[in-house]
């Protein structure tokens, strides 16, 4: 739970008075372009980056005063791979279990279970550099679970993975949620957010722009369907005449609607158009509408 949470690096405001509450047992997403403040927010929740102002509590404990207690309840899968290259898969987990004061026999039992869970048992004695990137992400997930966390923080859990590996991670996340673990994740992939998150926020330049359920956000900001047409003056004039909700992106114009048939019919009849595409509205439309199409560096 955060209120007016702020993080400044010198003059630069990375996170600007954000407010959010994550409920136990849900999957909560932080979306936003690069530099939106997602990872910084994650690091404040993890108690590794002190906040500048505001309040932030995890399970009722303030991050500024109960770091060890909070960290004991967290599992963290960072964006960057920081597995220990000097160790094998199993040794990585074993060394990590020591940081949580786990007795060796308990740790060994849990490690076997976790390796089964992330389907890495056959790789248990492989050194890290011989793992594929998908295996590394799975191992990082297993490592985050070693202390049976109540809250799991996943920073870009599927970045750079092929579709198979990504689906496997998604399955695991769903399965963890069904075990009652609260999950906070950040992602650039809007399909991933729409699929996994019960609720999410979209951040940009340190602020939260919207919060809600993915389907509700799509309905509220876009409608249920999108019709795309070529960006030509007649089309724009025609849309304006009909009072449609539309946006122009380069050589395309997107019309947001709940009734694509009618729009399509109108466009075809009145505006004499050649090419039209109708599709379901997605979270990506909401994202781009709210954060704009300007490229972020």
């Amino acid at each position: 739970m955060a209120e007016d949470l702020t993080k400044r690096f010198g003059e630069f405001v990375a996170v600007d008075k954000v407010r959010f509450t994550v409920h136990e047992g849900e999957v909560f997403g932080f979306l936003g372009p690069n530099g939106a403040g997602k990872t910084t927010t994650m690091k404040m929740i993890q108690c590794v980056s002190p906040m500048t102002a505001g309040t932030l509590t995890v399970f009722g404990m303030a991050v500024s005063s109960h770091q060890r207690e909070i960290k004991r309840l967290l599992g963290v899968a960072p964006q960057e791979t920081n597995l220990d290259p000097d160790f094998t898969v199993r040794e990585n987990l074993l060394v990590y279990s020591r940081y949580f004061d786990m007795p060796r026999t308990t740790a060994e039992r849990i490690i076997d279970e976790l390796l089964d869970f992330v389907q890495l048992r056959s790789k248990r004695d492989t050194v890290i550099e011989h793992l594929s990137s998908g295996m590394k992400r799975r191992l990082i997930l297993a490592r985050a679970l070693i202390n049976s966390p109540r809250l799991l923080i996943l920073d870009e859990p599927t970045i750079g993975l092929d579709p198979q590996a990504r689906h496997l991670i998604w399955d695991k996340i769903k399965s963890l949620q069904s075990q009652g673990i609260t999950i906070v994740l950040t992602t650039h992939y809007l399909e991933e957010a729409a699929r996994l998150c019960d609720r999410l926020v979209i951040m940009d330049t340190g602020r939260i722009l919207v919060e809600g359920r993915p389907d509700e956000l799509v309905r509220a900001y876009i409608g249920s369907e999108v019709v795309e047409a070529a960006n030509e003056p007649e089309v724009i004039a025609c849309l304006a005449r009909n009072g449609a909700s539309y946006e122009v992106f380069g050589d395309r114009v997107q019309i947001y609607t709940t009734n694509p048939r009618e729009i399509t019919y109108t466009l075809l009849k009145e505006c004499k158009l050649g090419q039209l595409t109708a599709r379901s509205a997605t979270l990506e439309d909401v994202f781009l509408k709210l954060t704009g199409r300007k490229l972020r560096e």
């Binding site: 060890r68 960290k71 920081n82 290259p85 940081y99 202390n147």
Partner: peptide, 14 residues
């Protein structure tokens, strides 16, 4: 390079 310290401070260690 290895980000080992980052990995460790995500646990109860400071």
């Amino acid at each position: 390079y290895q980000k080992t310290f980052d990995a460790i401070i995500a646990t109860p260690l400071s």
